[in-house]
Simulated assay, not measured.
Amino acid sequence: MSVLIVIPARYASTRYPGKPLVELTGATGEAKSLIRRSWDAAIAVSGVDRVVVATDDDRIRTAAEAFGAEVVMTSEACANGTERCAEALENLGGGYDIVVNLQGDAPLTPAWFVEDLVAGLRAHPTAEVATPVLRCDGRALNGFLEDRRAGRVGGTTAVFGSDHKGLYFSKEVIPYTSKTYADDEETPVFHHVGVYAYRPSALAAYPKWPTGPLESLEGLEQLRFLEQERPVLCVEVESRGRQFWELNNPEDVPRLEAMLSEMGAS
């Protein structure tokens, strides 16, 4: 089954304008843009036929092409990354069995997250869309709670049923737990990893559906599938000792740089 990875990237982010071009310094002191680090994460994934950056901004296009990325220009009207992936696939003429949306703000995404996600979708022939979830340790959960106490929107959490179909995704920390966890302690909270794998038919249908109230309230694109009663398969992935975080706010830059240093990433 052929696999396309699309990295949607827009300059006009509401919370963090220009985010794809923000530079992050690695363990060796080298600074690389967020879009470059996201591209490096994508090309490290095995079993992929093609990787493209999808953007509507010439500044991002110029920066991406400068480090050798293939770029597909898309409309400014795309409301989110899923709509941008749908347009990118159409502009490329289709021809792929699985399309992966590797969002351009998740440069720490390990290759095995995406590989396990694709394997999970392949193993469930009736599933139309899948996304990874990562069980939080105390360190990650405490980071979520710290963001909420400070009034920041951090990462997203997910709850799912015994069949691993998503019940809900939220920028609040769900499910509620009153317990305090040590940094290395396992918690009942799952971090939703901002990566998606779609069947082309589901991706093509998505932009035609109206934006529902839950998607509008949370600002989470995957809720459109749930509001259309289209199941989202949650594929549990393992951290293997790696920290994971997205760049959501300017305050996340030092957090990500510390993680890059801890990983020894250049």
Rank of each mutant, 00 (worst) to 15 (best):
242 R>W: 02
154 G>F: 02
256 L>R: 00
219 G>W: 04
121 L>G: 15
239 S>K: 00
192 H>A: 15
141 L>C: 11
83 E>P: 02
235 V>R: 03
209 W>T: 13
179 K>N: 14
134 L>R: 06
117 L>W: 03
110 P>C: 12
79 A>R: 13
153 V>F: 09
79 A>I: 12
260 L>T: 07
117 L>Q: 09
9 A>G: 06
85 C>N: 05
47 G>S: 09
31 A>F: 01
141 L>I: 12
116 D>H: 05
57 D>K: 04
53 V>C: 07
234 C>T: 03
195 V>M: 08
100 V>T: 07
105 D>S: 15
160 F>K: 14
217 L>Y: 05
261 S>Y: 00
185 E>H: 06
222 Q>N: 14
201 S>H: 01
139 R>I: 08
27 A>E: 04
188 P>K: 07
25 T>A: 15
26 G>F: 02
11 Y>N: 11
224 R>A: 02
129 V>G: 10
40 D>W: 02
184 D>Y: 00
96 Y>L: 07
69 A>T: 11
148 R>F: 09
230 R>E: 15
214 L>I: 09
235 V>C: 10
138 G>A: 10
158 A>T: 12
35 I>T: 12
78 C>M: 14
218 E>D: 03
113 F>P: 14
155 G>N: 14
62 T>P: 01
146 E>D: 13
18 G>I: 11
190 F>Y: 14
140 A>V: 11
246 E>S: 12
207 P>R: 05
102 L>V: 09
24 L>R: 04
153 V>Y: 04
68 G>M: 06
140 A>C: 07
82 T>V: 14
9 A>W: 03
186 E>R: 13
43 I>Y: 04
77 A>C: 04
201 S>R: 02
3 V>E: 03
88 A>W: 00
76 E>F: 06
16 Y>R: 11
43 I>N: 07
202 A>I: 06
184 D>V: 10
178 S>L: 02
131 T>S: 09
159 V>T: 12
17 P>V: 13
150 A>G: 05
125 P>W: 00
166 G>N: 08
155 G>D: 14
127 A>I: 07
22 V>D: 05
201 S>V: 11
208 K>V: 07
215 E>H: 06
172 E>I: 06
112 W>I: 14
83 E>M: 04
245 W>R: 08
38 S>L: 11
206 Y>G: 01
183 D>H: 10
76 E>T: 13
205 A>C: 06
179 K>G: 12
182 A>K: 06
125 P>L: 04
128 E>V: 11
98 I>A: 07
111 A>S: 15
166 G>M: 13
211 T>P: 04
264 G>L: 05
176 Y>K: 14
218 E>C: 10
2 S>Q: 05
257 E>L: 12
24 L>F: 05
60 I>N: 03
225 F>M: 15
25 T>W: 03
221 E>Y: 04
27 A>L: 06
244 F>S: 08
145 L>H: 03
39 W>R: 13
86 A>Q: 01
209 W>L: 15
75 S>H: 06
173 V>M: 10
57 D>M: 11
64 A>M: 08
142 N>I: 04
35 I>G: 03
